[in-house]
Write a protein that binds this DNA or RNA. Structure first.
Length: 213
DNA sequence: CACCAGGCAAGTA
DNA sequence: TACTTGCATGGT
């Protein structure tokens, strides 16, 4: 157990409390949200998801049936809407071909195997795959995103050359392998990042980890 | 006006 | 392998 990572988690949890991620009504909604939130503000994703619900498109069958143009129109607020509409279709194609459109069948697959399959889908990279595994299917996989990298860099826990796998391994080899822990830890890092760790403007004033650096 | 947000793929050298 | 670029909306 890495003391530093454990201490940071305890401190964040003490300050912010449980984050209860992922904010969605169904596992499928989590998967769709994971694709829509790529390099995009979450508030815009919520608007897109609301549109999909309104159009009755937020289900495997709904998205499968709908033409690309209709999906694109619905998810417009989330940005990159043409790209993302295609990515949703790609994902649906995978879900149907490999698991007959059944989330349940998908969930019963070994998660490292499933991770490889997801990465083979055009439009699903490491963060999106891991978000689906952890937040939709409750698999013990740590999610790494831009905030995670930025925060670890500022605390000198990683080098700037560290890749996704390096960062994921750092967590998975040094904290307890629990879904609940992975879930809350990543969500807390995002929470911290949103409030105190901007790209070119680290707002250290008042940051709960001020004395950690 | 500039910059940012819970990335990814494709092109280039 | 290691950059670079396109994709796009909405908030600050």
């Amino acid at each position: 157990m890495n003391k530093r990572l454990t201490r940071i988690y305890r401190k964040l949890y003490a300050v912010f409390g449980p984050q209860c991620w992922w904010p969605a009504d169904t596992p499928f909604e989590v998967m769709v949200g994971a694709i829509l939130t790529q390099n995009t503000n979450w508030g815009n994703v919520e608007k897109a998801v609301a549109n999909l619900k309104k159009e009755k498109l937020l289900s495997p069958r709904g998205l499968l049936r709908a033409p690309l143009s209709k999906i694109a129109r619905s998810i417009r607020p989330s940005g990159y809407y043409n790209i993302k509409a295609g990515r949703l279709k790609e994902f649906l194609g995978f879900l149907c071909k490999s698991y007959q459109g059944s989330i349940k069948k998908m969930a019963s697959q070994d998660h490292w195997q499933l991770r490889r399959q997801l990465l083979a889908v055009k439009g699903i990279g490491e963060e999106t795959a891991d978000s689906i595994l952890l937040y939709s299917l409750s698999k013990p996989v740590f999610v790494v995103d831009a905030y995670t990298r930025r925060i670890l860099l500022r605390h000198r826990l990683i080098k700037k050359e560290a890749g996704y796998q390096d960062i994921q391994n750092l967590f998975m080899e040094n904290i307890k392998n629990r879904v609940k822990l992975f879930n809350e830890y990543h969500a807390l890092l995002v929470r911290l990042g949103k409030e105190f760790c901007f790209k070119n403007n680290p707002r250290c004033r008042g940051c709960p980890l001020e004395d950690e650096r």
